[in-house]
Amino acid sequence: MPQTPPPTIVPHGMIKTGARVFLVPGWVLAIAILLKGYADIGDGFAAGVIAAVIVILQGIAFGAEELEHIRVARFAPVMCFIGLALAYAVAFVPTFFGYSILTHFPRMNEHAAHFGPLEFITPVLFDIAVFLVVYGFCVGAVMTVARAELRHKRLLQRARKRGGNR
């Protein structure tokens, strides 16, 4: 099979700078969107996508190796499953106390402790779970491919060197 090496794309300096500059503000924005969902438009899903895009941008700008150094990226697949478990727990724990599935506490019209506009209610937990799942899935999927690609590249180089010696 004819095999042409894929063209290597060197990211522009602007992307590198932008990726670094936006990393922390991006996460702040994501968390803000996650939390303000209780008073305004916004939810865990949108927040997860934004956080994932920011992290994936690091990989695009600095190469897939960089993702391994970012802790929130390395553990993304685990975060995805933790989020899923958290969501299921919010859904199923009420059934042990005789409520129906996904019942939220405190119930409607009951007093909920709050901190500013943020209320401490179980839907927040569920939204955090959604955030984790979305973030974990997006970054985890990219990471899996990136890891395979890295190994593939390293291997091709090694094998080519050996093939050339023969």
């Binding site: 499953f81 899923l84 478990a85 299921y88 199923f92 059934t95």
Partner: peptide, 18 residues
């Protein structure tokens, strides 16, 4: 009614990590 679903859902997460 939720028990079979619950067993399967938590089980699938557990197995995904193993």
């Amino acid at each position: 009614i939720a028990l079979p679903l619950g067993i399967l859902m938590f089980g699938s997460i557990l197995l995904a990590l193993l």
